[in-house]
Design a protein around this nucleic acid. Sequence first.
DNA 1: CCACTTAAGCAACGCTGTTGCCAAAGTGCA
DNA 2: TGCACTTTGGCAACAGCGTTGCTTAAGTGG
Lengths: 390, 390
Amino acid sequence: MTSNDPIPHGTERALCASSGFNLPALRGHNTALLLGLLRAAGADGVSRLELAERSGLTPQAVSKITARLRAEGLAADAGRRASTGGKPRTVWRLVPGARHAVGLHLDRDEIIAVLADLAGTPVAVRRAPLAFGAGAGAVLERVAEEVAAVRTRSSAPQVLGVGVACPGPLDHASGVLHRVTGAPHWDGFPLRDALAERLGLPVVVDKDTNAAALGLVGSAADGGAGSFAYLHLGTGLGAGLVLDGGLYRGPRTGAGEFGHQVVQWNGPPCGCGRRGCVEALCLAAVARGDLPGAARVLGVGAANLVELLDVDRVLLGGRTVRERPDVFVAGVADELAAQAAARGRTGPPVRVTTAAGGARAVADGAAQLVLGPLFGPRRQAAGTPPGGPA
Amino acid sequence: MTSNDPIPHGTERALCASSGFNLPALRGHNTALLLGLLRAAGADGVSRLELAERSGLTPQAVSKITARLRAEGLAADAGRRASTGGKPRTVWRLVPGARHAVGLHLDRDEIIAVLADLAGTPVAVRRAPLAFGAGAGAVLERVAEEVAAVRTRSSAPQVLGVGVACPGPLDHASGVLHRVTGAPHWDGFPLRDALAERLGLPVVVDKDTNAAALGLVGSAADGGAGSFAYLHLGTGLGAGLVLDGGLYRGPRTGAGEFGHQVVQWNGPPCGCGRRGCVEALCLAAVARGDLPGAARVLGVGAANLVELLDVDRVLLGGRTVRERPDVFVAGVADELAAQAAARGRTGPPVRVTTAAGGARAVADGAAQLVLGPLFGPRRQAAGTPPGGPA
DNA sequence: CCACTTAAGCAACGCTGTTGCCAAAGTGCA
DNA sequence: TGCACTTTGGCAACAGCGTTGCTTAAGTGG
C-alpha cells in the first residue's frame, strides 16, 4: 500500500549535476529554491520581490510559483509590510504544518523518535529504551511502534517519509548497515528497504553524526551557505562535515571518521589498532577527569580539520560535551586561536560553539534527511565564472 | 578592448545551486553537460543514443544540441559505428581546436605557460625563469610576454581566458594574493583584475595544488565522478581536494593545507610554530636521505585524510615524489593498507598512484580553471532521493 | 529483392519563465 | 477631499526549451 505522494510537484526531481535537465526538473528546481528561501525567512516571512531578488527569478515567475505553493497549502500570506510610498508588499511564509517527516535516532540502547514539521520543529517526541543488539525483527517491530506512536500524536499530518540515524558504519546510498558493534547479525542488513516495506513510507538512512550535522545546516547565525564541522563526543568521537552548504558523505558514506585521526603517531595504542588517535587520547583524558586536557586534544584534531577543510565554524555536541560545554568550547577555541596565530592567519577566527538541540539533535537531523531535499540543493556553484576584463 | 566572446551559447550561465533557473540557463546546462560527455569520450567519440542514455535527455534533444554544437564548430561527426542490424550510429567527437585557454604556473623562480585546447592537450608550452619576488609591474610584464608568446605559437586560436596557479595563500573568488613568501609587497595584490586588464582576457586565479588537482579530474581511470586527494611534495607539502567530482576550495580558498597537519603533537617544532607537522617530519626525512621514512610519514597523514574524507584514491606528485615515485607510492600504500586492516575495512583498498603530467601538471591544471566551466558542473547531487516503498 | 531493424530528422506540442501592459492599493501634497 | 505619484501584483501574449508522434534514411539478413 503506497502512502500519500511524498514529493510535491510531480515525480520529476531537480537533478543538479551530471543529469539532463528538462522542463519538469526546472520547475521542481525553482519551486524547491523558493521553498528554501521561505524556510530561511522563518516566521518573519518574505515578500515576492525579495524572493525574486534572492532567487534571480523575475517577480512574475515568483508570483506564479507562490500561487502554486499556496494552492498546495505549502505557503500562505502573512500580512503586509509597511508601505514605502506605494502599494505595500504582501509577506509570504511557509506553512510548517503542511507536511511532516519522522526522524529516528537509533542508538545502542535507546530510540528517539520525532515528528517534525516543514520548519523542522518537532510536534511530537518519544524516547524509549531499545535493545539494538537484539534480532532485526524485534527491532523493526519496536521502530514501527514508535513511528506509529508519533504519527498519531498529531491530527493526521501528511508524512513524507522516515529518516533514520544510526551509529554506522553504513551505506547511505543503499541503506545497508555494515557493522553494529557487538551484534554481527546486523552485518549487511538492508535497513532502508526493510523499514520502507514495513512502514509503507520512503526511508532514508544515514550516520548519526551526519544527521546531526544536517540538522544544524542553516541553524547557525550566518544563514549557512558555508562550511562547518560538527564534532560529536559521546561514547565515541565522530564528525559530520558540511562543505559549501551541503553534507559531505564521501563515496561510501565513510566521511567524518574523526575519532581515529592520528595526532601522536608514537602515542598510546587505540582500540582500532593504531596509535595516538584523537578518540583514544580524548577519552582517556575524560576517564581521568581531565576535561580541559580532553578539550585540548580535541582542539588539536579540530585544528588539523580546520587547516585541511577551511571551515567557517566548529560545532561541538554529544553527551560528554554537554556535561561541561564551556570547558570544551574554551579548550578547542584556544587551540584554534593558537594555530591561527602561529600560521599568521588574518581575518576572523573560526567560531567554536556548542550545537543546538541537545539530546534530540540527532533525531531532529534525521527528519531533515527527508525534509532537506524539498528545499533544494544547498550547494554553491562549483567554480567561480571567469570575470571579464574591466 | 574586449576579446572574442569567452563563453559560447550566450552570456547566461548554468547556475547550479542557490540560483533561479530560467530557459537560457537550462539550455546552457544541457549544452555543457553534452560537451562534458563528449570530452569524457575522448577521441573514440560517442553516438547520439549513448549521449542520450548518459545524460538522461531524449535522443531528439541530443540531436538538437549536437546540431548546435556542430554549427558552432565545437563538435563534429567522426565516422560511424558497426551496424547492429539497422542503420549504424553516427559517432560524434569534440573538436579540440575550436577553443583554447592559457594556463600559467607561477612558481617562486620560474613560469610555465601552456596553451591548451578543449581536450586539455597543450599545443604550446614555454618555460622561463621568473623572479617572483620582484616588483609586481615587472612580473606582470613578464607574464604578458609569455602569454603573448604561447598565443602566437598556434594559428590564431580562439582563447577563452587565462588560468593562473600560484603557491598561495590567496583568494580564488576575488583573485587577490594574500602572502608571497619573502615578498611582502605582494600582500593583497589584485592579481586577477590586474592581469585581466593587462591582457584583455578573463583571468582565474587559484592555488597551485588546486590547479594540479583540477587537472587530474577525469584523467584517472574510473571516469572520475568520485573523490580523490592530490598530495604535492616539493619545496613544501600541500594538497588539492576533489570531493564528489568537484574541486573543494573552502570558503576562503584555504582548503588543502595538508602540510601542517599535526601527526605528532609532542614532536619536533615546525617552522609554522606548531609541533609534529607532516611537512616538517617529511622534509626532515627527505633531508637525511630517508625517502622510505618520508613516505611513511606522508602515509600517516594520508591515512588521516582518507579516514576523514573517504576518498577513492590518493595521487602523489611534486618534485620530491618524482625523484623516487615507486618508494613514495609503496610507502603511502602500505600505511593506508595497514590502517584499513586495523579498522576492519572491507572493500577495495584506496588506490595510490603518481599523478600524470610531471612538471607541467600545474600549468595544465591552470588551463582547466578556464576550460572546466564549459563542461558543466562536475558535482553529484547533494542527497539521494528517498526511495519509495517496494 | 524484400522484410526487418535501427538511427535520425521534421513538425506539432506542452510547458517553462519572460515581457508588456494594466489594475490594485497605498502615500503625500494641494 | 481629491488628485498625482509610487509601488505591487495579475493577466495575456510570447519565445524557447525538451518531448512526442511520425516519417525518412540506411543499414542487415534471409
